[in-house]
Computed example of a mutant assay.
Amino acid sequence: MIHMLTWFSTTFILINFCRGSNLEHDGWVNIKLEHCLLPSDSPIFTDRGNITIQSLRLGQAIVNQNSLTQEERVQLKEMAATNQFYQIRSTVVSNDGTENVFLSTIKACMLAEAQLDDRLSVSLDYTGRVIGITLLIASKSTCEGAVVPLSKLKEFTTSVYVRHPEVGPVPDTASYIQKMEREREAKERGEVKDNRSILAKYWMYIVPVVILLMVSSMANPEAAANGGGASR
């Protein structure tokens, strides 16, 4: 038992060490942004811009986005007026060449009333791999019905936030193992008295006997009944 706990503790420490090493290892990703400005069951995405996160560990990002044309501004304003959803598609290319695609939506009226001031939340796992991209509006939690002029719907001002995984508390397995070792040594020296009841000490022997008697009684109900009659 002690050797098993020691092995578990060593394995746990190695796993956490590897996780820590992966978190400390820096990398970069490129994110191609596309958006849909025409509500449809089969959305058509057009180019919105490009984001390069130079350091995943530090969250350093370069954002290059296109200005909306007059036609696109009108489309966005119409989507806001009709309570439609604005959708983006993010294609993530990691430094190892792998690609992943993420979709995110918000209400078009929230984006319009925020005057294209949005936030892109990039979530990472323990290995530094992107596992989610979410579009948010930090200044708005709901639409207020404000009328925004088209001149305010030209340039995106996007902030990029890289979210690292939260590391939970590490159990103190070393202290637990030391405690188990002390108890074992004390038992070997006879310093620890076993104050348990007879049932608590020998339940592993008593329970099978009781189960065997119950099974025998259920298997021979007539014999049990005859035996009861004979006793009377």
Results as ranks from 00 to 15, higher is better:
residue 160 V to Q: 09
residue 47 D to R: 04
residue 173 T to F: 14
residue 7 W to V: 01
residue 135 L to A: 05
residue 120 L to S: 02
residue 117 D to T: 08
residue 37 L to T: 04
residue 196 R to V: 02
residue 123 S to F: 01
residue 38 L to P: 04
residue 164 H to V: 09
residue 44 I to A: 10
residue 13 I to A: 05
residue 184 R to N: 10
residue 55 S to L: 15
residue 129 R to E: 09
residue 144 E to R: 03
residue 40 S to P: 10
residue 102 F to V: 01
residue 183 E to I: 15
residue 177 I to C: 13
residue 70 Q to P: 06
residue 140 K to D: 01
residue 122 V to E: 03
residue 73 R to V: 02
residue 158 T to G: 07
residue 122 V to Y: 13
residue 50 N to I: 08
residue 162 V to C: 07
residue 227 G to V: 04
residue 183 E to L: 15
residue 64 N to I: 13
residue 222 E to K: 01
residue 49 G to W: 03
residue 59 G to L: 13
residue 121 S to A: 06
residue 214 M to F: 07
residue 182 R to N: 01
residue 71 E to L: 14
residue 112 A to L: 14
residue 168 G to Q: 09
residue 82 T to S: 13
residue 82 T to W: 14
residue 162 V to F: 12
residue 14 L to H: 11
residue 129 R to S: 06
residue 173 T to C: 12
residue 223 A to M: 12
residue 164 H to T: 00
residue 148 V to C: 06
residue 158 T to K: 03
residue 130 V to Q: 04
residue 182 R to H: 03
residue 3 H to P: 06
residue 126 Y to T: 05
residue 114 A to P: 06
residue 173 T to K: 05
residue 49 G to K: 09
residue 59 G to F: 11
residue 39 P to K: 10
residue 199 L to V: 14
residue 68 L to W: 05
residue 193 K to R: 04
residue 111 L to Q: 12
residue 121 S to G: 10
residue 77 K to Y: 07
residue 105 T to W: 00
residue 97 G to A: 06
residue 16 N to W: 13
residue 6 T to Q: 14
residue 24 E to L: 07
residue 77 K to R: 12
residue 205 Y to G: 03
residue 74 V to G: 05
residue 121 S to F: 03
residue 134 T to L: 12
residue 181 E to A: 11
residue 28 W to M: 13
residue 173 T to N: 04
residue 63 V to M: 13
residue 70 Q to L: 11
residue 180 M to F: 11
